[in-house]
């Protein structure tokens, strides 16, 4: 095996796992911002935990038949079972990390309660992993067609500054739409206040960084095909980092607007509260926004 082939094999695997992570967050985040799931996690016993883990695993095997998180794989049942184990592990890790980030996995919670919350939250994250191939790969077929890519490239060169501005506006619109679709149902709920009230300044910074990293993963790393496509795409901010920051800022604006609309933010709140609420809602909004960009 040549080193080049080895390299691409690792990149392909990284690509698959990051796609799984993207799917997990896209589908899992609305239930991460649902307090009933946290409370149920504190009430389950070992039997409930085993049942929910087993149910998620079986669901992943079923989902892997139609979707799964790996690209370009022919279906072999033994491989599918191993893939489902990887998918379950990804779901558990994503669920645990995101619970920790929002402050609902404190170290004084006790091991059994922690595990209960993680296994309950892993169910929606697992479903997300199971359908991630469909969730984040909407444009796979188009991206793979070399003729279309060439056409697109020629088109890029001919584009004027005006065209680039138009492209950026289309991107921002798609981001805003995606952010609204995911975060609108979360904005008026009490969870935003609950999560925000638990955050220190460091916690808010961590939520910001994680929002940026997950958005980046969703838009640029979920598929190398999509990535190369996006690199050529029109727009002023073509560099992936600029695009991610731009997408995050749009998502924050959308969050701010929704919080104001639902009267959660008003003149009686301090700037600190404004900032915290917007950043906390910005987490689901930016994930939706990143997915929105992917869809155009």
């Amino acid at each position: 095996m040549t080193s080049g082939k080895k390299n691409s094999q690792w990149l392909e695997e990284l690509d698959d796992v990051l796609r799984a992570v993207s799917g997990a967050f896209l589908f899992g985040i609305p239930l991460l911002y649902t307090m009933e799931v946290w409370w149920i996690g504190s009430q389950v016993d070992a039997l409930d935990m085993s049942l929910s883990l087993a149910a998620t695993f079986i669901l992943l095997i079923i989902l892997d038949y139609g979707a799964g998180f790996r690209m370009n794989k022919k279906y072999v049942w033994s491989v599918s079972i191993l893939d489902s184990l990887v998918a379950l592990a990804v779901a558990i890790v994503c669920a645990a990390l995101s619970l920790k980030i929002i402050g609902y996995l404190p170290s004084d919670l006790g091991l059994e309660n922690m595990l209960g919350r993680i296994t309950m939250e892993a169910i929606p994250f697992g479903i997300g992993v199971g359908i991630s191939d469909h969730l984040v790969e909407g444009q796979k077929a188009q991206g793979e067609d070399p003729n279309r890519q060439q056409e697109r490239q020629r088109g890029e060169e001919e584009r004027t500054a005006e065209g680039k501005l138009h492209g950026t506006l289309v991107d921002m619109g798609a981001t805003a739409l995606g952010a609204v679709i995911v975060a609108f149902a979360i904005a008026p709920t009490e969870e935003i206040l609950f999560i925000a009230s638990r955050q220190s300044s460091l916690g808010i910074l961590i939520i910001m960084s994680v929002s940026l990293v997950i958005s980046y993963i969703i838009v640029f790393e979920a598929s190398f095909v999509s990535e190369s496509k996006r690199m050529q795409q029109r727009g002023i901010f073509q560099h992936p980092v600029f695009e991610t920051v731009n997408s995050y800022l749009v998502s924050l604006m959308v969050s701010l607007f929704m919080l104001w609309l639902f009267k959660i933010l008003g003149s009686d709140q301090s700037y600190q509260e404004w900032l915290n609420y917007v950043i906390v809602l910005g987490f689901p909004a930016s994930i939706g926004g990143a997915a929105g960009r992917l869809a155009i």
């Binding site: 935990m49 883990l53 558990i92 296994t119």
Partner: peptide, 8 residues
């Protein structure tokens, strides 16, 4: 994870 669940 499974080890912990069994232990509980």
């Amino acid at each position: 994870i499974v080890g912990l669940v069994v232990w509980f």
